[in-house]
């Protein structure tokens, strides 16, 4: 209802009672529940004029998720993934995984770097990543989002083995923890865009992932996820089942000269090339990559409507799963 003008009735109100008004009634119930969670039933907002007390040193970037890597927690996570998360994700996203053959001879800890447009991304990647890495992998989670309350922090740490990380720039605390884990032989999953895409197009990469790879000399495996934004875009609460493609790229070694800025660009280009592969065929994508004409993931530099228009066009190649049922069950020529 955000687009509604003040004082105007919603068009629904002028209509007779129909299925639509029933849906509206339902959303009314939901609004009431949300109201119930606000003050005084929920916690009160903090007045801006009053000074904030010192931050809780056990939350945010300071949250210590060490316990989530204990043998018990690891086993619980594996069980949780095998029994609940993976079947659910398979049903919801029916993922097709490509490019795993590019990892056939690769057997080292790695930093998996992916584009990010949905809350489904991390659990989905965990469900399709080969066990060689999944069993010893942590996820870089936004400290301010996943670790702001205790229940969220515990859940993120347990289910995803998330480790808090700042979005804007890597602090010594989180960088130290990540390099320590990488040095210990753990692999990492990180979304260098720093957050989910608001419109489906990619956002500029932050340098953290490249920096960590160079710092710990760990190879980077680029990943491109296509389709999660259609199933559960940012701002949506109810997932719509669909079809997702995960494209694994070949591992890239960090440069020996330690130039993480160039390396960040290399990673970004690699992910863009993986996306290009899915849109057309691999050889054409290689040709464009060689010519430097791979379409950027960030989309055209234009107004919002033209960007979403272009997005729709880019997606036609990989729409929802093709209808496999044939005549006579499906009467379609």
């Amino acid at each position: 209802m955000s687009g509604q003008l003040p004082g105007a009735h919603s068009p629904d109100k002028r209509l007779p009672v129909t299925a639509r008004s029933w849906a509206q009634a339902r959303s009314g119930v939901r609004r009431r529940i949300r109201t119930a969670s606000t003050f005084p039933l929920g916690s009160p907002p903090w007045p801006g004029t009053v000074e904030l007390p010192p931050a809780d040193k056990t939350l945010g970037v300071h949250y210590d998720s060490e316990w989530a890597r204990s043998p018990f927690a690891r086993r619980a996570r594996t069980a949780l993934q095998a029994t609940v998360a993976n079947p659910l994700l398979r049903a919801l996203t029916s993922p097709s995984v490509r490019g795993l053959d590019r990892l056939a001879h690769f057997d080292e800890p790695a930093i998996f770097v992916a584009n990010h447009s949905s809350h489904l991304d991390a659990p989905l990647i965990l469900s399709v990543i080969p066990p060689r890495w999944r069993d010893e992998l942590f996820v870089a989670g936004a400290a301010d989002y996943f670790f702001d309350t205790h229940p969220k922090a515990v859940l993120s740490a347990l289910a995803l083995n998330a480790v808090p990380m700042e979005r804007q720039r890597v602090s010594r605390t989180s960088a130290g923890r990540a390099t320590q884990l990488l040095d210990d032989g753990w692999s990492m999953l990180i979304f260098p865009e720093g957050g989910r895409s608001p419109d489906g197009w990619g956002q500029p990469h932050r340098p953290g992932a490249a920096w960590l790879a160079v710092r710990s000399s760990v190879p980077v495996v680029p990943l491109y996820l296509e389709g999660t934004a259609r199933i559960l875009p940012k701002g949506s609460r109810r997932p719509k089942p669909g079809h997702v493609t995960v494209n694994f790229g070949a591992p890239i070694l960090p440069p020996s000269d330690g130039d993480s800025r160039t390396f960040a660009r290399t990673i970004e280009d690699a992910i863009a090339a993986l996306a290009d592969e899915l849109a057309g065929d691999w050889y054409a994508a290689r040709r464009r990559a060689a010519a430097g004409t791979t379409p950027p993931l960030s989309g055209p530099d234009a107004t919002a409507w033209r960007r979403s228009w272009a997005l729709g066009a880019a997606r036609t190649g990989a729409g929802p799963k093709a209808d496999s049922s044939r005549w006579p069950w499906n009467h379609r020529p």
């Binding site: 592969e277 065929d281 050889y283």
Partner: peptide
């Protein structure tokens, strides 16, 4: 020859 090569050349 792998899916990538197949999908690049078989359809055309």
């Amino acid at each position: 020859i792998g899916d990538r090569v197949y999908d690049s050349f078989a359809p055309i």
